[in-house]
């Protein structure tokens, strides 16, 4: 049961973040919620890559070849990509929130509902 704990954490984080996307009204808090979702996906990939008693997949100053066990490299590469993409998304969302605040004077979704009125 203990070994499945990481997966339970992943799923709980994802549910937590989506629930807060549904219930939070502040644009900045929505960004934080999405960051939590992204972290849960990163944790998921890193969990998939784990092997017990292993080193990082780097040969510089590694133990001798015969007793070498390494964790899987490709999930690490992928979450590297995902982190950068998450950073990019976060930055853009924050900028859009700033401009929304400058245009409307509020960050509350309830007060921003007037999108439908033209001009």
């Amino acid at each position: 049961m203990l070994s499945i704990f990481l997966y339970v954490t992943v799923v709980s984080l994802l549910i937590l973040s989506i629930t807060s996307v549904i219930y939070k009204r502040n644009l900045i808090k929505l960004v934080i919620a999405l960051n939590i979702a992204e972290s849960s996906v990163n944790l998921f990939f890193i969990t998939l890559a784990y092997r017990p008693d292993s080193t990082a997949p780097i040969f510089t100053l590694a133990p001798a070849l015969q007793e070498l066990r390494m964790v899987l490299p490709s999930p690490q590469a992928l979450i590297l990509t995902n982190i950068v993409i998450g950073f990019a998304t976060t930055a853009l969302m924050l900028v859009l929130a700033v401009i929304t605040y400058k245009n409307n004077g509020t960050l509350d979704i309830r007060k921003l509902k007037g999108v439908e009125d033209h001009d």
Partner: peptide, 23 residues
């Protein structure tokens, strides 16, 4: 020597191009 780097820049280099494009 670093297999993660070789995955990032060689085996999956096209992903990295896309990632740089995202930035």
């Amino acid at each position: 020597n670093n297999i993660v780097t070789s995955v990032v820049f060689d085996y999956r280099g096209f992903d990295t191009l896309g990632e740089a494009a995202v930035l």
